[in-house]
């Protein structure tokens, strides 16, 4: 295979991957952020304490999160058809990717939000703020560096999952590596794909870390900034005692 043969394949694959991962990340953030916050708020001692709701959400999230992606994809076929009208192609892959990533991101959000000092919540309550104020002015902005790290982790995980999306004909970099490298012994193309994946993941990770660090430095100062592939944020933001 020559470079001129590979190039359009790779280009298309890159776009397919970014398309799938981009949309499913967006959906995962939109769905996982409120879910993660709700997990904190409904917990014992939380602002919207509701033990039953907390247990139910927690259980659903755990099950969805531990489900192997390939099984999730198959299990969700009819749901995917209802939404996208098809079970193959890029759009069809986005549905299971997003649904797999929502609980994944939600747990990371939960961990990040729990790190927020409860004193800040109390301060806002003492000013007369309601629960929504607390979420909007305290929980989200104060955990933003960790939330960005969490989103980065989710993107990287989604790139991994999207490799399996090839099985429903969605294309993407992972699909190329499997089809050409594994099935047709095009070792050259496979290694190039691997290299491209490595570069894409590194760039995303770097951008995410950079953004998180910048925000963190602005606010925190003393604590260590979130590090590469850290699931949890760094220590609580600096608090002089």
């Amino acid at each position: 295979m020559t470079w001129s043969e590979m190039q359009p394949l790779l280009e298309q694959a890159c776009w397919d991957t970014l398309y799938m991962v981009g949309w499913s990340t967006l959906i995962a953030v939109v769905g996982g952020l409120p879910l993660g916050i709700l997990l904190v708020l409904t917990d014992r001692g939380g602002l919207l304490q509701n033990v039953v709701a907390n247990k139910v959400i927690g259980q659903v999230v755990n099950i969805a999160r531990s489900m192997p992606f390939i099984i999730l994809m198959v299990a969700l076929m009819s749901f995917t058809r209802t939404i996208t009208g098809t079970t193959i192609g890029r759009e069809a892959a986005i549905v299971p990717l997003a649904i797999g990533a929502i609980p994944f991101f939600a747990r990371l959000v939960e961990t990040a939000v729990r790190e927020v000092d409860h004193g800040l919540v109390e301060a806002v309550q003492a000013m007369g703020g309601n629960t929504w104020t607390v979420v909007r002015r305290v929980l989200v902005p104060e955990s933003l560096p960790s939330l960005i790290s969490s989103a980065t982790t989710t993107v990287v995980a989604l790139i991994g999952y999207s490799a399996m999306a090839g099985t429903v004909g969605a294309g993407g970099l992972g699909d190329i590596a499997i089809r050409y490298g594994y099935q047709r012994f095009e070792t050259g193309l496979m290694w190039i794909t691997v290299a491209v994946l490595a570069v894409v993941i590194s760039v995303i990770q770097f951008a995410g870390d950079y953004a998180a660090r910048r925000l963190h430095r602005r606010g925190g100062g003393s604590g260590a900034a979130p590090r590469l592939r850290l699931l949890k944020a760094g220590p609580k933001l600096g608090k002089a005692a």
Partner: peptide, 21 residues
């Protein structure tokens, strides 16, 4: 109650300032 609270100021031992602001 929230309205009444807004007319009562409170200061804390650990300041409780938002680090993001």
């Amino acid at each position: 109650l929230r309205r009444a609270r807004s007319r009562i100021g409170m200061v804390f031992q650990h300041f409780n300032l938002l680090s993001s602001r």
